[in-house]
C-alpha cells in the first residue's frame, strides 16, 4: 500500500473532516488526474502559461509566440540545445557586426538574441538554478558591447552616447539587486531596445537615452523605497 493511501485511510479513520471541492473543477480542467495522453495534453496547456509567466522579460506579445514555440522546442533535445546556443551566438554576431559597422545587421542579430533570451532561460532554467549563468551574462555583455558599437558608429556625439549607455548598463545592474519582479523590471531591455531603434531612425538617440535613463532611475528609486518596507513586513 502506498504512503498516500495509508495516510488517506488513517485520516478517514481518525475522523478528519471531508472537504467538498468546488463544483466543476474537473470539467474546467483546474483539477485533473494524469492517466493518459489526453490528460497529459490538458496538463501541458496549463503548465505552459505558468512557465512563461515566470520569466519577467517575456511581454504579452512574446508570450503568445512562446506558447506556440516552447512546446515544440522542449519536446526536442536538439532544439533545446539550439535555442540555448543561439543567444550567445547571435550576441557575438551582433557585437562583431557592430565592430565592422554593419549597423542594421548588428541591430537585427541583437534584437533576435533578446527575443530568444527568455526562451533560452526556460530551456535551461532547471540546469542553471544553483549555478551562475556565465553564458547568459556573457551574452548580455556582448549585446551591451554591440549596442555601444552601434551607437558609436551612428551619427554625432558618440562619447555622449557611450556615457549614457554605460549609465544604462549600470541601471540594469542595480535592477538585479533592487528590482526583483518590481517596477523597474517592467521597463526591460526589449521596450528600451525598440525605443532606441525608433529614436535612432529619427536621429534622436541622445535625447531618447536621456529619457530612458530618467525613467529607469526613477523606477529604481521607487523599487529601492519599496524594498526596505517589504523587508520590514
Amino acid at each position: 500500500m502506498s504512503l498516500g493511501f495509508r495516510l488517506l485511510r488513517q485520516a478517514l479513520q481518525s475522523g478528519v473532516p471531508l472537504q467538498d471541492m468546488e463544483a466543476g473543477l474537473v470539467l474546467d480542467k483546474r483539477l485533473s488526474k494524469i492517466d493518459g495522453a489526453v490528460t497529459v495534453q490538458i496538463a501541458e496547456e496549463h503548465l505552459l502559461p505558468a512557465s512563461l509567466d515566470s520569466e519577467d522579460v517575456v511581454g504579452k506579445g512574446l508570450s503568445r509566440i512562446g506558447r506556440k514555440w516552447l512546446p515544440a522546442i522542449l519536446a526536442r533535445p536538439w532544439a533545446v540545445m539550439a535555442t540555448a546556443l543561439s543567444v550567445p551566438a547571435l550576441s557575438a554576431v551582433s557585437a562583431s557586426l557592430g565592430y565592422f559597422e554593419y549597423i542594421v545587421g548588428a541591430a537585427a542579430a541583437g534584437a533576435l538574441a533578446l527575443v530568444l533570451s527568455p526562451l533560452r532561460k526556460l530551456c535551461l532554467s532547471a540546469d542553471y538554478r544553483s549555478r551562475r549563468d556565465y553564458i547568459g551574462h556573457a551574452s548580455l555583455g556582448l549585446l551591451a558591447l554591440a549596442l555601444a558599437l552601434i551607437l558609436w558608429a551612428t551619427g554625432e556625439a558618440p562619447l555622449d552616447r557611450l556615457f549614457l549607455t554605460a549609465l544604462l548598463a549600470l541601471a540594469f545592474w542595480m535592477q538585479k539587486t533592487l528590482g526583483q519582479r518590481r517596477l523597474s523590471q517592467q521597463f526591460s531591455l526589449i521596450p528600451i531596445a525598440l525605443l532606441l531603434t525608433g529614436a535612432s531612425a529619427a536621429g534622436l538617440v541622445v535625447p531618447a537615452l536621456k529619457a530612458v535613463l530618467l525613467i529607469k532611475f526613477a523606477l529604481l528609486v521607487l523599487d529601492a523605497r519599496k524594498t526596505p518596507e517589504t523587508n520590514q513586513s
Partner: peptide, 12 residues
C-alpha cells in the same frame, strides 16, 4: 498530502 498524479491549478 498531494497525490503526485494529480494536477491542480495555482488558485485552488
Amino acid at each position: 498530502v498531494k497525490s503526485a498524479d494529480v494536477q491542480v491549478s495555482d488558485d485552488i
